[in-house]
Amino acid sequence: MKFSILIAAFLSASSLFGIEPTNAQLQKALIKTTLAESETQKARTEIIKIREELAVEIANRDEEAAKRAEAEAEMEAQAQKILEKNSSMHISVIGQGVAPMNTSSPAQAYALAKRAAIADAYRAIAEKVKGVHIDGQDLIKNMMVKRSTIRTSVKAMVRNANIVETTFKEGLCEVEMEIIISHSDFAQ
């Protein structure tokens, strides 16, 4: 009995003494929670800021993409220029020609190669201005391509083309040719 009373007294005393540290712990915990709350608030504000920044960045990227698309569209429009009324278009091509084997002199070889290069340049101009007819045919036998044929043809009339530059190197003649076409040239 004595021991039990003593134990009870000891426990009650210890419990009495033990209240104060738990309060302190609670206070500490409260402080911690307040700190944590403030940190979470800070984190939230940061997240909001980051989200805003991300939204701005996304908007910027979208704008850049739109600008790029516009630039590409402009480039394509320039590449596929349409000849409008009261406007002209400049076309430049390079034609290549080879001298025949049986020439009597280098001068003749040059003259003939140049003529062939001019014809090639004319062909290139005609292709650019009028377009090319293309016809293809593939013969397949026993799951194998036996014969593949591509035929292209151009028919046109070219006038007022100018030779800009002529180079002759190692038997190959290159002629740079230009033509300025206007809408009135095609008017009927």
Binding site: T149, S153, V154, M157
Partner: peptide, 25 residues
């Protein structure tokens, strides 16, 4: 004569990746 204007007739054939072409001015 070239400046006056020439008619161009060009034909090109590619058979089994071997190309031949004929241009008549």
């Amino acid at each position: 004569i070239h400046k006056l204007g020439l008619h161009i007739e060009h034909k090109e054939q590619t058979i089994n990746l071997q190309n031949t072409s004929t241009t008549i001015l």
